[in-house]
Simulated scan of single mutants.
Amino acid sequence: MTDRSSRRPRAPRGTLNRDRVLAAAVDLLDHAGPDAFTMRALAQRLGVGTMAVYSHFQGKDEIIDAVRDLLFAEVELPPADARRPPHAELRELCRAVYRLLSEHPSVLHLLATRPVQGDEGTLFAERALGLLRRAGLDGPAAARAYTAVMQYTVGAALWTARGRKVRAAQGCDDPAERLRSRFAGLPPDRYPCLTGLAPQLAAAQDGMPQYEHGLDALLTGLLGDPDGRG
C-alpha cells in the first residue's frame, strides 16, 4: 500500500510554467544525478502529474537541452580586452568554468550525452586558446596547455562537488573538522605527514581559494611570471 505521507504536495492548478520546470530539473540533476533524471521523477518533484510537464516540454531531451543552455547562460565570461595580460583573462575564464562545474557537476554529463548546439563550450575554448597563443605559446604548446588547464579545472570542480555531497550526507558542514576527526585516530609513527600536517590539510579544503592556488601555480608554470594578474 502506498504511503501517502511520503508523497510531495500537489502543486496548485495553473501554477506550472517552463521556469518552474527548469528550476526543478536543475535541482533534480544536482541532487539526484543524471541517472535519476526521468520525466516521472521530475513531475514528482514538481508535485504534478507527468503529463503536466509534457504540456511545457516535448520530452526529457528538450528539458536537458534547456537546462544546459540555462546553466551556461549563468557563466559570466570576462570581456575580451587586448590590453590585459593573457594570464589575467585566462584566470577569470577558468574561474567561471570552475564555478559552474562545482555548483552543477551534472553539466559534464549533459555535455557528454547531448551534443552542444550553441557556442557554450566552443566560445570558451576559442577564447582560452587565443589567450595562450597571445601569451607566446606555439600551436602544439597552446593545445597541451589548454588541455592541462581544463583537466585541472574539471578535476578540482568535481572534487569540490563531491566533498559538498559527502558533507551533506554526513550532516557535516565543516570540511576542516571532518578531516581533523579522520586524522585524529591515525598512529603518528605510521602516518607522520598526515597527522603532522592535519591542520594545514584541513585549511586547504576551501573550494575556490584552493582552486585559485593551484590554478595560479599551473598558469605560472605554463606562461611564466603573471605580471598584472589582477
Rank of each mutant, 00 (worst) to 15 (best):
T2P: 15
D3R: 14
R4L: 15
R4S: 12
R8M: 14
R10A: 10
P12K: 08
G14H: 09
T15K: 08
L16V: 08
A25L: 04
A25P: 09
D27Q: 13
D27S: 10
D27Y: 07
L29A: 06
L29I: 07
D30R: 14
H31W: 04
A32L: 14
D35M: 02
F37V: 06
T38W: 01
T38F: 02
T38M: 01
A43W: 04
L46S: 06
G49D: 06
A52M: 00
A52Q: 02
D61P: 00
E62T: 11
I63N: 00
I64V: 15
D65C: 04
D65P: 01
D65N: 04
A66W: 05
D69P: 07
F72L: 08
E76Q: 13
E76H: 05
L77S: 11
L77M: 11
A80C: 12
R83M: 12
A88M: 06
A88I: 05
A88L: 08
R91D: 04
E92L: 15
A96F: 07
V97H: 10
V97K: 11
Y98I: 00
R99Q: 05
R99P: 01
R99C: 00
S102C: 05
E103G: 15
H104Q: 09
P105G: 01
L110Q: 03
T113Y: 02
Q117P: 00
G121K: 06
G121V: 14
T122N: 00
L123E: 11
F124K: 08
R127E: 01
R127V: 07
L129C: 09
L129N: 03
R133T: 13
G139D: 12
P140S: 04
A141V: 11
A142D: 00
A143P: 01
A143L: 15
Y152E: 10
G155K: 12
A156Q: 13
L158M: 10
W159N: 10
T160E: 04
R162F: 11
R162A: 12
R162N: 06
R164H: 09
K165T: 10
Q170A: 13
G171H: 03
D174W: 03
D174G: 09
A176F: 06
E177G: 14
R178N: 05
S181I: 03
R182A: 15
L186S: 04
P188F: 07
P188G: 10
D189C: 12
Y191G: 08
C193M: 15
A198W: 02
P199C: 13
P199T: 08
Q200A: 15
Q200Y: 06
L201W: 03
P209I: 10
L219T: 02
T220C: 11
L222T: 03
L222E: 01
D225Q: 14
P226N: 06
D227T: 12
G230P: 00
